[in-house]
């Protein structure tokens, strides 16, 4: 095992561990903050796989904005701090079993499909190379995705305004 693989393993364990802690935490704020650790560890994994642009976008967008949005939404809708603020229903065991089954199923599919393969012609994930890939090979999905995001944005505005008298 090379040094890179060892560090990757460490990051992966951190990511999975903090995800578990996030799900089982009794307090909502703690759950959100464990999520930050998970996303940060995933960004670390990206860096180790030389996808540095994606790593910093992950930090900037996910950690910097999405988690802040999640916490903001929590603050607006319910009291997120204090013990037992993360309401757990009786379905959590069913959810845990389903989650484990989904994880095992996905993992098995990945290993069966890609196990033992080596990636050919891997490019270093700098901004330039990603820009090349996006605008040469993947331009159509890129444009469709931006259309989907625009639709989501407009839909959110419409839904949030439909409650008020206009």
């Amino acid at each position: 095992m090379t040094l890179t693989e060892i560090v990757f393993l460490v990051f992966a364990v951190i990511a999975v561990g903090s995800a578990l802690l996030s799900m089982t935490s009794g307090q909502l704020v703690h759950a959100a903050l464990w999520l930050v650790v998970t996303l940060g560890a995933v960004a670390g994994c990206f860096v180790l796989m030389t996808a540095e642009f994606v790593a910093w976008v992950q930090v900037l967008v996910y950690v910097g904005s999405v988690v802040v949005l999640v916490i903001f939404a929590l603050m607006l809708t319910r009291q997120p701090s204090g013990a037992r603020s993360a309401e757990v229903t009786g379905n959590r065991w069913v959810a845990a079993v389903l989650g484990a089954a989904a994880a095992i199923g996905l993992g098995a599919t990945m290993v069966a499909g890609f196990g033992g393969e080596q990636i050919e012609g891997r490019r270093i994930g700098t901004a330039g190379s990603i820009g090349d890939a996006l605008f040469n090979d993947w331009v159509l999905p890129f444009e469709i995705l931006s259309g989907v995001l625009l639709a989501a944005l407009i839909g959110a505005i419409v839904i949030s305004r439909s409650g008020s008298d206009r």
């Binding site: 704020v29 903050l33 930050v36 540095e52 642009f53 910093w56 976008v57 930090v59 900037l60 950690v63 910097g64 904005s65 988690v67 802040v68 916490i71 603050m75 997120p80 701090s81 700098t126 901004a127």
Partner: peptide
């Protein structure tokens, strides 16, 4: 860094969480 600008912006956006944690965690 090749991605210096992005790196600095990403780091600054993580700093936001500190003040947020202070606000939520103070009771």
């Amino acid at each position: 860094l090749d991605l210096g600008l992005f790196f600095v912006l990403a780091a600054m956006s993580v700093g936001v969480l500190g003040t947020l944690m202070g606000g939520l965690g103070s009771g």
